[in-house]
């Protein structure tokens, strides 16, 4: 079936974009292949790993399960947008300080799930943290350092955000 195109306008990492995209292209492909923002990863492509997590209107979502066309009118944040004026976000700093990155494939998605959690709740308890990152799989770290980083980011006030 031949794909028609669809026009979308949205804000991504504080920048306005107007694009014409194939109608069934995923939001993930729009972000990676059209906009060149390759920080967002494709792991499973079917909603199970969370590597493709981005924030849409303040909520963490799997960009592999969303149509690019559904981005129309939305406010999108990807891992590239966490840094502001050369300053890492405090969540990113905490991940570095606590050695929460090994191969790094899961990291952008977990950073975005954490960011969305903090948008809702600046001081989540352990269970809320576990729930917020349950949709993100990490094959390397065993989650201990990731969890420690998130706890750390709750209490630090340094960095932007």
């Amino acid at each position: 079936m031949e794909d028609k195109t669809v026009c979308i306008e949205f804000t991504i990492n504080r920048e306005k974009k107007a694009l014409q995209i194939p109608s069934r292209m995923s939001a993930l492909t729009v972000i990676r292949d059209i906009l060149g923002l390759t920080g967002t990863k494709e792991g499973c492509g079917v909603g199970e790993c969370g590597a493709c997590t981005i924030e849409v209107d303040g909520q963490a979502i799997n960009s592999c399960l969303m149509f690019g066309a559904q981005l129309d009118g939305c406010n999108v944040l990807t891992v590239e947008g966490l840094e502001k004026e050369g300053q890492l976000h405090r969540i990113q700093k905490a991940f570095l300080d606590n050695h929460a990155v090994q191969c790094g494939f899961c990291t952008p998605g977990i950073l975005m799930s954490t960011h969305a959690l903090f948008e809702e709740n600046a001081n989540p308890d352990d269970e809320e943290i576990t729930k917020a990152i349950a949709g993100n799989i990490c094959r390397c770290t065993g989650y201990q350092q990731i969890f420690a980083s998130i706890k750390d980011a709750c209490s630090t006030k340094t960095g932007n955000g």
Partner: peptide, 25 residues
């Protein structure tokens, strides 16, 4: 019909929607 799209995306990838001509959001 597309609501959240979480099932539709997977059906599309699996080639189950080849006969469809429209996605209605």
């Amino acid at each position: 019909i597309v609501a959240g799209g979480t099932d539709v995306m997977i059906d599309l990838r699996a080639g189950k929607l080849e006969q469809k001509k429209n996605l209605l959001d």
